[in-house]
Write a protein that binds this DNA or RNA. Structure first.
Length: 470
RNA sequence: GGUCCCAUCGUCUAGUGGUUAGGACGCCGGCCUCUCACGCCGGUAACGGGGGUUCGACUCCCCCUGGGAUCACCA
């Protein structure tokens, strides 16, 4: 009945924030589900009671929320499913696919060290395998792995991978405190949640044969597995904190657009011909597992930045207002959606690589008092420019309308009367209005600032020059 | 070390036996211009090495090298 319905999942463990790699895994699963019109499930893997925290859970939700990756079912918490796991352990115990083991951790450790010293593999040797032990105080439950033959992983992304069963040992599925372990709960959850497509990082490849064996022992059909290549740092080792920001939310703080971030992440390992820029909808439309590459990729901040700039440029200004406002608020300006803020954004969106930078560039629009950049003032606010500025003040004051066309005319008039080129007049005016040598076009900022503020800022510049030359 | 995976410009990648090996980021020029950007035009730069297979290999096979992953009562 639901045979064709793709069901994917994202199963983070709440032992820290959502990091870049996790976000990419979530994205791939989400995109695949959305593209296939399937379901996407969120599952919190919190069986490690010691390392799991509520803060991490909240941080993961917040990050997914920012990325606008939504789920159809869940979140499920493994910590609430222990009864289910127990039932499945019983099944395995009954069928003889699992057994109790009473070897102590110390003993196991010695066993491994000895094996290593002898040049062998650090594996459990299966002493309790045939002992027929019952549940006891410190007993763990182990899975009885086949000792011969092979297990084949038919990977959607990587192709067939063959594992020798004798490389696998009898791994623990229930700890001595009665809690189940990862490989086991993943399989039970994926079976009971009808997950039929598992997309995850390459680092899980080695777990997969164990899980396949578990599926078989539990008589369940295998999901499609797809292992995506890792994300590496600039030194080509696995991405970690020392490569820079790992937390997804850090990118929000730096002023990235979620769509740009997603666009970058998906292109790191997936491609669609020559296309680099994708909107969210395009991604859903065009994403397929078959276009995921095989090789790991280096996370490149520069390219992410460029993509962010491209998205900022493309998003309609009115949709940027709410994204920008937190960054303005950080400077003390509480803005509301308005035609004014939209025009402000229009002058800045081609000039800003991040929202944070955009907010900083926009500050002059909001300030009551402009403070001049020292070098800029020294160079451009000199006595020589006084006549043209004063003339400009007069001309502007006489203007009824204050639109770009009118302003151009005003400047033209001043140019004619002073014999100066536009650049000679515009630069001092720019400093007077913004305090800096770089800004949006002089006419657009004058129009947006409006007559009163422009005149008063120009007058202030005149005062500044006169004071200085005294 | 065992096992597994990977290998095209500095980086992300397109390429699926015959291409001047394409695009993007970065970098370097130029144009545009009221500054800074944007945009546009141009340039720089790659098939790790060795064997095969083939009329012909970036493409297929093997070996080497290099890189990565994984070997828990973590997930």
């Amino acid at each position: 009945m639901e045979n064709n319905l793709i069901i994917t999942r994202f199963p983070p463990s709440p032992t820290g924030y959502l990091h870049v790699g996790g976000a990419r895994t979530a994205l791939f699963n989400w995109l695949h589900a959305r593209h296939m019109k399937g379901k996407f499930i969120l599952r919190i893997e919190d069986t490690d009671r010691l390392r799991s925290t509520q803060e991490s859970i909240d941080a993961i939700f917040e990050a997914l929320d920012w990325l606008e990756i939504d789920w159809d079912k869940g979140p499920f918490f493994q910590s609430e499913r222990f009864d289910i796991y127990r039932k499945y352990v019983e099944k395995l115990l009954d069928s003889g696919d699992a057994y109790y083991c009473t070897c102590s951790p110390e003993k196991l450790k010695k066993m491994r060290e000895k094996a290593m010293a002898a040049g062998g593999k650090p594996r459990y040797d299966g002493i309790c395998r045939e002992k027929g032990l019952g549940s006891g105080e410190d007993a763990v439950v182990r899975f009885r792995s086949p000792r011969t033959g092979t297990t084949v992983l038919q990977d959607t992304i990587k192709g067939n991978i063959v594992f020798q069963n004798n490389e696998l040992d009898d791994f623990i599925i229930t700890r001595s405190d009665g809690t189940p372990t990862y490989n086991f709960v993943v399989v039970v959850d994926d079976i009971t949640m009808n997950i039929n497509t598992v997309i995850r990082g390459d680092d899980h490849v080695m777990n997969t044969p164990k899980q396949i064996l578990l599926y078989r022992a539990l008589n369940s059909p295998l999901p499609a597995f797809g292992h995506v290549p890792m994300v590496l740092g600039s030194d080509r080792t696995r991405l970690s904190k020392r490569h820079g920001a790992m937390s997804v939310l850090a990118y929000r703080e730096m002023g990235y657009l979620p769509d740009a971030f997603l666009n970058y992440l998906v292109r790191l390992g997936w491609s669609y011909g020559d296309q680099e820029f994708f909107t969210r909808d395009e991604l859903i439309e065009k994403f397929t597992l078959s276009n995921i590459g095989q090789s790991p990729g280096v996370f490149d901040q520069e390219k992410l930045l460029a993509l962010n700039a491209a998205h900022i440029k493309t998003v309609p200004p009115n949709r940027l207002v709410n994204r920008l406002s937190p960054f303005l608020k950080a400077h003390g300006y509480d803005i509301q959606p308005s035609p004014f803020i939209e025009s402000v954004i229009k002058t800045l969106n081609a000039r800003s690589k991040t929202l944070k930078a955009m907010a900083e560039s926009a500050l002059f629009y909001f300030k009551d008092e402009i403070s001049y950049d020292d070098k800029a003032a020294n160079k451009f606010l000199r006595p020589g420019v006084l006549p043209s500025i004063q003339l400009l003040i007069q001309t502007l004051q006489a203007l009824d309308r204050f639109e770009e066309k009118d302003l151009e005319g005003a400047f033209l008039a001043v140019m004619e009367q002073t014999g100066l080129k536009l650049g000679k007049i515009a630069q001092p005016v720019r400093i007077a209005l913004t305090g800096k040598t770089a800004s949006p076009g002089i006419f657009e900022i004058i129009e947006i600032l409006g007559k009163d503020r422009v005149i008063s800022r120009l007058k202030k510049a005149v005062d500044f020059i006169m004071e200085k030359s005294d």
